[in-house]
Amino acid sequence: MAALSRRRDWTLLILLAPALVYFLVYHLIPIGGMVMAFQDYRIIGKSPFVGLKHFKMLFASPAFMQVLVNTLIISFMKIVLFFPLPIVFALMLNEVRTSFLRKFIQSTTYLPHFLSWVVIAGIWIAFLSPSSGGANQLRGLFGLPPRDYMTDKSAIRWVLFASETWRSLGWDSIIYLAALTSISPSLYESADLDGAGALQKMRFITLPELLPTMVTVFILNMGFFLNAGFDQVFNMMNDSVISVVDILDTYVYRIGLLNMQYSFSTAASLFKGAIGLVLILAAHQGSRRITGKGLW
């Protein structure tokens, strides 16, 4: 029996085969193909190696530097500034005792997470419209002149932040809500006996109990810092604001698939992938060290 269970079962490879073919075709071969960042890609014939030519062009390009700055700023807003909001949301929701109301608020605020960015952009463009949008109707109530947020360079990044919050505030609070409900009630009961107030309970019980979850979420997000949300930016940008919202992924798309500078675009992807890899590995290590659990 022992010998039998140690024997390898080759028929299992048949079950694994479709997934392997997929990984090979859509992941491994394209990753290997990224060697063309060091070549001048030719559709017919051999592509000659050109060393770091495309990378030098990339770093000498003011457009790319602007894209990099945009990516960092937008990511900072969506990861660091946004970070406390779902925690506060979960803390408030946790205090709603009426089951019906609680479920209503949850079911409503989780919904936008499942809408595509195409839909959300459509709704937001309408909502922010200077002529008929709800935002400007509200401004009107306060006697303010209408403002065209979507084409305003000083406002558009905040539009990205606000629409990201609109989409993710509810959904991202789930993990904290789960952590809150798993805190043992006996902790609060003994605090009550000691005469602790609401603030003290928050500071000495709730927040410390939430800390591991906060750390995990934060570190995980840091691993994807260079992403900044392609679908959102792609659907919300326009010619008036492209200079302040163009991020790495939209840039790679434009120069690669629209301008067909295949090797140059791949160089930008490779740059992003290399930094991203370092960030993810750091996040993995950091998470393992602080919470004992890595990303995989």
């Binding site: 992941h27 394209p30 990753i31 990224m34 490779l270």
Partner: peptide, 19 residues
């Protein structure tokens, strides 16, 4: 290991397109 590689290495849009 292959799965972790797939998880953390993202192919370039251009090379996926060409494949």
């Amino acid at each position: 290991i292959l799965i972790i590689v797939v998880m953390i290495l993202e192919p370039a849009l251009v090379t996926e397109y060409l494949v």
